[in-house]
Design a protein around this nucleic acid. Structure first.
Lengths: 150, 150
DNA sequence: GTTGACCCTCCAATGATGGGAGGGTGCAGG
DNA sequence: CCTGCACCCTCCCATCATTGGAGGGTCAAC
């Protein structure tokens, strides 16, 4: 299986397959004499695992931990569960922040007549409101991508 | 007002103040003879506006549009509202994706006994489930930060 | 034996942010 | 006056996951 087929089989782009290898998330694929990467069914299974974890919003580092647990026959399911629940809490935190933003924006938009006149509570709100969102604790662990914290 | 004071007054880090200037989001601050940036109260008001928009999850490009509207005395409030509601839809889309992830993970975790035994429905789920989240349409506009799409 | 689809590596960009090096400025105390 | 410290400057690099492209090799089919 070449990298293109592996990509189709796993739903991971060719670029990302090479990247995951480069950063050590997965072991380097075997190479044909041509230098082409060759993927086994076992590789594919592992990569699908990676993609599903990614689909659930796990970061690469967490996926690495999950992979370790996956491959460790003597793991404790408690460890897996802890990792998963940690991640759930992280996602819930992000959701709370989204909810705050959505709520504030909807509130502002609701009071905006939205016609051709210039006066607009949305702009006024952005000009004068204090803290739209309660400044979320800037802890290292919670990496949010969108600019939300101050 | 030097950049450090401006930072405290706006809640925007010194680094970001310089960055916003560099990318043209705000006009370059005046300079003292020393080369130090000098901020007026008007600058500060504008930067606070920027920070609040950022707190509501707007991207820098959208903030640029908002700033334009803010400064345009003859704007139509409909334009502002449209921008805000577009953004609300974007946030709601992100929230739906988060909800899916949270739901799936909680479901998996709920079935995991979480003790010292190795068998774990979470890992099994990641190994065998199809599409954890329905592949969200990969449209350019919806920039999500976490890896979610395949 | 050429064409076209594939693969390789290396480099760069994204977006918002932080970190640091290397060096200048400004003010207060000795 | 000089020293020290807090502040400021620019420039470069790192992050995270991901895409894009350039420049070049490989393979299979026609």
């Amino acid at each position: 299986m070449n990298i293109g087929e592996a990509s189709k089989a796993t739903g991971i782009s060719v670029k990302m397959l090479r990247y995951y290898e480069e950063i050590g998330l997965v072991r380097p694929a075997l190479r044909a004499y041509s230098g082409y990467r060759v993927y086994s069914d076992k590789n594919i299974a592992m990569l699908r695992f990676v993609r599903r974890a990614r689909d659930l919003g796990f970061q690469v580092k967490q996926i690495a931990s999950l992979l370790d647990l996956w491959q460790d026959g003597s793991r404790a399911s408690a460890d897996v569960k802890a990792l998963a629940l940690d991640h759930v809490r992280e996602l819930e935190q992000r959701r709370r922040e989204l909810d705050e933003m959505i709520g504030t924006l909807q509130h502002l938009a609701h009071h905006c007549h939205g016609d051709s006149r210039p006066d607009c509570p949305i702009l006024t709100g952005l000009s004068t409101e204090e803290e739209a969102t309660p400044k979320p604790a800037r802890k290292k662990a919670s990496r949010r991508s969108f600019a939300v914290a101050g």
